[in-house]
Design a protein around this nucleic acid. Structure first.
Lengths: 187, 187, 187, 187
DNA sequence: CATGAATGAGGCTTCATTCAT
DNA sequence: TATGAATGAAGCCTCATTCAT
C-alpha cells in the first residue's frame, strides 16, 4: 500500500519487519509528534535505519502509511457497529471511543483531519472509506431519532476532529463531549 | 521569561525592534507553521538574526511570546464585550470571531490549547487572563438565558480550541459551529 | 582477480549469469557513469543484487572486470587488423574507431587510460596485451611509411586516451583527430 | 559569483573564509576527484561544515565555483601572453603550461572540457572568456606562421582538454605533446 | 547458487545558537 | 546594540556489503 514493486507478496520476515516499523512509527509519532526522527522509529522498532527506508522510501510515505492505517482501523470499528441494535448508542459510542483514542495519540487527530479533507489528502482512498462508514452510522442514528436530521457526515467528521484535538491538547474530559452531543441531538 | 536583564527598561529603538520581530514571527509561524526557521523571521522583520536572539534567547521563547501576544489580544477582545447590551450575541459573536481567526492562523489554535491547560503552561499568566475574560462573558450570557447554566469557562475554552482546530484543518464552515452552539444553548 | 574459488570451473548457468552481469555493468557505467549503483546493474541484468556480489565481491572488482573486458575487446580488434593490406589505413582506422566508441562510452576512455599506466594498474595483464597489439599495428604502419618513426606504442596509447576523452567530453568531431593524425605522419 | 545576496560586498573575514574554502576545494577535488566529500573540503579549509554551505549552498555550486575559478585563471594567463613578442612561443608555451597544471590537478581537465562545451555548461560565462583568449593567441600565432591556418579555437580547446587528460591519467610526458604540436604546425 | 532483506557508515543539507566585528 | 558569519549537531537519504531464506 506504500511502495515495494506492486505484485511481489513480500517475504514473511520482511512482512513482519514492515509491521514492526509501522507499529513503532505510530507509537513514536503519537508520543513525540510527527516531527520525530526516522532514526527514533528505527530504534524503537529494533531495526536498522536502512530497513525503515527500504519499506518506506520517504519520511512522508511513512507518515502517510501511519495515517492510512489509523483511518482504516477507525473505519473498521465503525463498520462493525453497523449492525448494532441501538443505533444511537452505536453512533455516540463510536464518537466517544475515537475521542478517547485521540487523547493519547495526537496522530489520530491528524488522521481524522486529513481524512476529512477528502481524497486529495495524504490518506488517499482511505479517507472516503471512513467517511462512508461514519455516514452509515449517522444515517441509522438519524432514522432512530437519536441524531438531528440536518447534519451530514462531513460535519460529523469535522466535529470529531475538533473534539479529538481538544481532548488531546486542551486537557478536557467528557464534559465537552456532552456539549457536542447535545448539539447533535434532535431539539 | 522573555530575556533582557530584568529592570533595564529597553531603549526606544530596541523596543521597536522587539515589536517588529514579534510581529514578523506571528506572521511567519502563521504562514509556514511553527517549524519555520528563525532566519526567516529575521528576514521578514528586516533585522539581523542576532537581533532576534538578543530579544528572544531561544526559538521556544519566541514562540511563547507569540502565543502570549495572541492570548492577550483575545483576552482584550473578550474584555471589550463585557459591557455589550446583548450578552448572548456577545458570547456567540466572540466565539465565532475567534474560530474565524484560527482558520487563517493555526497559531491561534495552539494559543488557545496552551491557555486552556492552566497556569503551568507556556502562556504563563496570560492563560488565566483569557479564561477569566471568557468566564465573564459566559456568566452574563447564562444570566441572560442564552447559554445553559451547567457549562464552565474551561469547557468553553476547550470547545473553542476544538472548533478552531476543525476550522483550520478539517476545512469546515459554519455548519459545525452551529452544532456546537446548539449544544451550548439551554435545552 | 575476479572471485570464485579458483579452480572450480563455474556451472553453466552461473557462467551465463556472470556474463549477463558484466554486460549490464558495461551498459550501466557507460550510461550513468561509474558512480551508478550496483543495484542498478543487478536490475538491468535481471538478477538479484546478491548474484552480482557473488560474482564480483566488490564494486571495484566489477568495475575492473568491465575495464578488462573493454581492453581485451580493443586488443582483439587491433589483432585482427595485423594482417590488413594497407598498414597505414589499418592503424588510423583503428585509432578512429576507438575514439568513436569512446565518444559514446566514457568507460572506454578510462580503460585506455588504465591500460596505458602499465601492468601495475587495475587492468592487470590485459593492458600489456593491448599495448602489444597496438605496437604491432604501429610498427607496420611505420614500415609502410604512414607514421613517423620516432613514436612509440606508449605515446600512441596516451594520444588515443586523450583524443577519446576529448571526443566524449569536449563535444568535438573529426577535426581534432585530423590534427593528431597530421602530427603522427612523417614530416 | 555564486550565491550571497548580490550587492552586499561581504565582510573582510567572510571574504577570507570564502577564499580558504575555494582553495581547499580546488585542492581536494584535484587530489580525490570531484566525488570527494564536502566534509573533507571543510576539514582541509579549517572551517566548520556550515561555513562551506554558507558560501556555497550546494555541493554542485562549490564544484562550479572551483571550475569557474580555474577557467578564469587560465583565461588570465592567456590574456597576459597577448602582447608577447614571439606569438608562436606564446601559443605553444601556454598550451604546455596548461597541460602541466592538469597533470597535477584533474579538475583543470574537467574545467577545460566544461569550458569547451560553451555557455550552456557549468562554467557559464567564463567558458567563452577562455575561448576568446585562446582564440586571440591562436590568431596571432597563425599570422606569425607558427600554427596552420585551418585550425579554430574550439579545436584547440578540445586538443588542450584531451592532452590534459592524457597528461593526468595516462602518465605521459612531453613526447605526446610534441606529436600534437607537430600536428598544429603548418605543413 | 540465487535472492533480496537488513545493515549502518557516510554524504548532503538545515538550522538553532554563539560570537567576533 | 545590531549584524551576520561561523559552528556543529542532527535529520534525511543512499548504497556497498552481508546474510538469512
Amino acid at each position: 500500500m506504500t511502495s515495494p514493486a506492486p505484485g511481489r507478496p513480500l517475504r514473511a520476515d520482511a512482512q513482519r519487519n514492515r509491521a514492526k516499523v509501522l507499529a513503532a512509527a505510530e507509537e513514536v509519532f503519537a508520543d513525540l509528534g510527527t516531527s520525530a526522527s526516522t532514526e527514533e522509529v528505527a530504534r524503537r522498532a529494533g531495526v536498522g535505519i536502512g530497513t525503515v527506508f527500504r519499506h518506506f522510501p520517504t519520511k512522508e510515505s511513512l507518515l502517510e502509511a501511519v495515517l492510512v492505517t489509523l483511518v482504516e482501523r477507525l473505519a473498521g470499528e465503525a463498520e462493525e457497529l453497523r449492525a448494532a441494535d441501538d443505533a444511537g448508542a452505536a453512533f455516540f459510542g463510536f464518537f466517544s471511543r475515537v475521542v478517547a483514542q485521540a487523547a493519547a495519540k495526537q496522530a489520530v487527530t491528524e488522521a481524522l483531519a486529513e481524512a476529512g479533507v477528502d481524497a486529495r489528502g495524504v490518506t488517499g482512498r482511505a479517507g472516503p472509506g471512513l467517511k462512508d462508514a461514519i455516514g452509515a452510522l449517522l444515517v441509522r442514528a438519524q432514522r432512530a431519532g437519536a441524531v438531528r436530521s440536518d447534519v451530514e457526515a462531513g460535519e460529523v467528521m469535522a466535529l470529531l476532529a475538533g473534539m479529538s484535538y481538544a481532548a488531546g491538547h486542551a486537557g478536557v474530559g467528557s464534559d465537552v463531549l456532552r456539549i457536542a452531543f447535545d448539539g447533535l441531538r434532535p431539539r
